[in-house]
């Protein structure tokens, strides 16, 4: 049976690590990285990529518009 699968791409250099996307994610896909970007922010990343359903909640609340969301049936 086809399954809805999502993924997000974070523009790491522009992410300020505010964590609003992590909070907005219903599947706990996202987390803040232990690594930092060149500005010293712990950027958001898919900690659990398998769980992403492509709902785009993360991108909706992102103040810096750094998240692109993909969704497809596999």
């Amino acid at each position: 049976m086809a399954k809805i699968k999502g993924a997000v791409k974070v523009d790491i250099e522009k992410c300020k690590g505010c964590g609003l996307c992590v909070e907005a994610c219903p599947t706990k896909t996202l987390d803040l990285s232990k690594e930092v970007n060149s500005k010293g922010y712990n950027y958001a990343y898919m900690a659990d990529p398998d769980s992403c359903i492509g709902c785009a909640n993360c991108a909706l609340v992102c103040p810096d518009s750094v998240i692109t969301v993909y969704k497809t049936k596999i």
């Binding site: 999502g6 300020k16 810096d64 750094v66 993909y70």
Partner: peptide, 28 residues
């Protein structure tokens, strides 16, 4: 992931009416 993250599967991306400038606002 490679299969999912294709141009045709984009459901949300930054609008072109926003510039590419990084906003000066505080995080969040």
């Amino acid at each position: 992931l490679e299969k999912i993250m294709k141009e045709e599967n984009i459901v949300y991306k930054k609008t072109k009416v926003l510039t590419d400038n990084v906003m000066h606002y505080c995080p969040g």
